[in-house]
Design a protein around this nucleic acid. Sequence first.
DNA 1: GTCACCTTTGACGATTTCTTGACGGCCCCC
DNA 2: GGGGGCCGTCAAGAAATCGTCAAAGGTGAC
Lengths: 224, 224
Amino acid sequence: MIKVLVVDDEPQIARALRINLAAHGYEVSTASDGAQALRAAAAIVPDLVVLDLGLPDMDGTEVIAGLRGWTKAPILVLSGRAASAEKIAALDAGADDYVTKPFDIGELLARVRAATRRSGPGADSPVTEIGGATVDLAAREVHRGGEEIRLTPTEWQLLEVLLRNPGKLVGQRELLHRVWGPNYDRETNYLRQYMAQLRKKLEEDPARPAHLLTEPGMGYRFRP
Amino acid sequence: MIKVLVVDDEPQIARALRINLAAHGYEVSTASDGAQALRAAAAIVPDLVVLDLGLPDMDGTEVIAGLRGWTKAPILVLSGRAASAEKIAALDAGADDYVTKPFDIGELLARVRAATRRSGPGADSPVTEIGGATVDLAAREVHRGGEEIRLTPTEWQLLEVLLRNPGKLVGQRELLHRVWGPNYDRETNYLRQYMAQLRKKLEEDPARPAHLLTEPGMGYRFRP
DNA sequence: GTCACCTTTGACGATTTCTTGACGGCCCCC
DNA sequence: GGGGGCCGTCAAGAAATCGTCAAAGGTGAC
């Protein structure tokens, strides 16, 4: 089932979207502000995000950037502003479509179909190899030698951020923000703790990691 | 170069699109009716199609269907009709986006960027060449002859400031401020120390630097 | 209430990185 | 020719960071 995350601070609109999307066979989650949206997205890993730009806590483009950091799921932006500059900013931040309110629900559904059609058959099961383990981010599964390995939610989030940036260094501040939230800046002991757990579960030789690498003083890197 | 096929029977609009797209680095072809469009598409295999629905010879959805039969290139539909039924029909026929005329050219370009961004993820981060080494600032990676070279955090910061101002002289005070903070003004020995380390790691002949140059009494300069 | 699991915290050597001081060579100016 | 300033280099102590172990909250299931 296709998972859709609806982000809107107006309960009526959120409710209307939820009902219509659910009626067409989508699995719908909702969030009412930017922080909630980012957390919910990390938790449920949606296939599509419908995002209202008029959120109370964050600028819309920040939310888009936060999502784009780790997911390629289509982002469909709703907004009351029809100004071209707004549209351009949102689209260039990483949004896939921009619909101005008031909108026709039928058209929105068609745009949702168009967006999911592209991304749907494109990616089957993006499995990543780490040491002797295979990681399936979409299915949230890790196997090693036929055995299934369980990861905790925090371990998943951390691993996902790293795997979505293969080869690239991810700063420790960025990791903390993405996994624990914007208020965490210096709790690098969290990173040490969870990186050690991930290595123990995934790496062939946890003491000498070959794929989950430390860049001293900067952050961590996943090497395929 | 990204190839765009513009299909419109109104010469003014087709011309305006061609000029704007070409100005932004796209390779543009044009067609003025549906049959031409399908033939041109088969010939040049575009990466994106901008399609006006009001064609003289065929219905717009037929053109979309004809393209969708063999290509997954994004189709961006232009139309004077704002009716939702039209939009839904076009989107469900296989279009990726639908823009009603009159449209803002900046917005259209943003939608083109959004559409091509999805389909063409073959964008590696830009690398800079220094001596025999390749520096990837985004990934925080340095290679030289297949070997990986490690830089410390301070070395990265210093190198980044220089590389982001290619060819330009950066004063030593500016370097100290950017890397160590606003309280450092005269600690030029830091610069000497770290410039020497960078040269040893990056330059072909560290004693006679070819890219990380000293401007005596002023500062340092990166020469590409 | 108890249990199992996950998250958060604290602390400690081992290692890397940063800072600091000193010395000689070079160039420019006097 | 002499002097001063600036740069490159080397070496060693100080500081920060990392991996690891251990244990204290928290939360939900039963």
